[in-house]
Design a protein around this nucleic acid. Sequence first.
DNA 1: ATGAATTAATGCCCACAGAGCATAGCTAAA
DNA 2: TTTAGCTATGCTCTGTGGGCATTAATTCAT
Lengths: 301, 301
Amino acid sequence: MEFRLLRSFRQVAQDLNYSRAAEKLFLAQPALSRQIQSLEAELGMRLFDRDKRTVRLTAAGAYLNEQLGPWFDTLGHLTEQTKRIHQGDLGELCIGHPGSALYSILPDVLADFSRAYPDVITSLREVNELELREALLQQKVDVGFLRDAPIDPRLSTRLVLEEPFALVLPRNHWLNPTTFDSLAQCRDEPFILPALGKSVTYTQQLLALFTAHGYTPKARYESNYGATILRLVEKGLGLAVLPISYQQGTSLNLRFLILPDTTRLHLVWRTNDPNPVVTNFLNVCQGVANDWPVTIPELSA
Amino acid sequence: MEFRLLRSFRQVAQDLNYSRAAEKLFLAQPALSRQIQSLEAELGMRLFDRDKRTVRLTAAGAYLNEQLGPWFDTLGHLTEQTKRIHQGDLGELCIGHPGSALYSILPDVLADFSRAYPDVITSLREVNELELREALLQQKVDVGFLRDAPIDPRLSTRLVLEEPFALVLPRNHWLNPTTFDSLAQCRDEPFILPALGKSVTYTQQLLALFTAHGYTPKARYESNYGATILRLVEKGLGLAVLPISYQQGTSLNLRFLILPDTTRLHLVWRTNDPNPVVTNFLNVCQGVANDWPVTIPELSA
DNA sequence: ATGAATTAATGCCCACAGAGCATAGCTAAA
DNA sequence: TTTAGCTATGCTCTGTGGGCATTAATTCAT
């Protein structure tokens, strides 16, 4: 079956006149004659009922002509959609992220991205830093956020955010902006720590803050969920150290004391991923990161 | 856009290996390489993400591949159905008929036809003999039944049924099989006649029965509907002359007395109508007509 | 009736699209 | 490093499909 034949057939079916149809098809009439003949031979039936002078569709030809229109349109639609996918306007994207990213730029990124590309179906998947590398390589996720930048040639990385850690404590705690000097003052305080395991970069970074002052924190509770940690702190069950981003939109009963140390959030994706949705996402991230406030706002109270 | 390219694309998408795909397509590998290249050029995008060693689908390519399957299937379906139409297994048929045909072979024909060709949508249209010729030529109906055979080169004709007229009268009428001799005895009886107009062949045939005995019947009522006529006769409002077929399945209060004169039912269709459904219908009619009882059964009582 | 005009089919020839072959160039595995 | 396996490219040539000229049939106008 050849395209050419079907296209010519439709034109003849429309004009019911070989000469005129041939003209529109930029063909000579004899060529068109033979095309129709060969199509009829291939289908094993006459599509036109014609004598030397007049041309009419047979019942089968009429049916074929009717059905062929939508069929051709489908192909047009199909290539159209394919082009949209190629431009990254359409498709799917799975984002792997640590829970903490939901408290920093990720919501803004998602907002911008879904505004720019409303037809991309975006799914979120909360994965810890150990899982993300595997998930990326196994195509489980397309992009991810990490607190450390893995060195793997198959993965590419870009720093999107550097922010200070903050000591989080209840507002009525004896430490406050005037009395607070350094983490050294918290040697005897109970802490609520992440439950990620010692090998995760984020945990290591966090613990390094304390060891710099010569002690390891006393862990009263462990949780991986920022919201949980904040709630526990608010109830006076311990202190916590979290990226300053968590301050946004949290209870007034909490106080965030900025620490000199910073943590970095990296964007990670498969090197040379051909999916245009991914590159579009990277661009949106870049934009959001550029606009992100570098200076942390003063506490409101 | 060319078929060849899409077919090759699908094979490569399936195998993800040019050499093997080329083999299955009965092509040399370089030809396939260039086909894919030309398809990509036409769509303005890469469909495969490939280096010298490995081939993978891009997002756009994956989409195209998925969508192309059903699309190809559609074409298969489409040609399949077209072939069925060509064979007359599928389609539409409009049958024009006089009301009287519904009392003779038409029901049997319809039954046989719809059993043999269940996917042909058959519609019935009750037309009188004057309208049928026009309806056929204007493609309003595809075949028809007529009591006379029109001589028109554009229409073809076949005799399907010859049957006697019968005098229809109430069972308690003074005429009965033993007393009945000929229509001459009915000179003074009121009759219920068709309302078709004098120019219609059937009317002329009918009236000729009476004029052969030297009188024109006294018309008390007129109706074109056999069922109506029979009911009027049953109620003693007059006698009627109808084709014997009407006897089938009518009330026991009626008596049918066979007359020596016959009426003929012809099948009519457009000469050289290319619609295979029509020729199939003609064949079914032929079959039914051949099996039709030539000898009229005796009256049951 | 007769010629002019229109139309589809056929014969013949030719150009070029597209296929094959040979090979280059690259990569992953052994 | 070698080797096997893969895609891309250069070159040549064949076969398909298109054009031109013509035929044959039909309609229409005079």
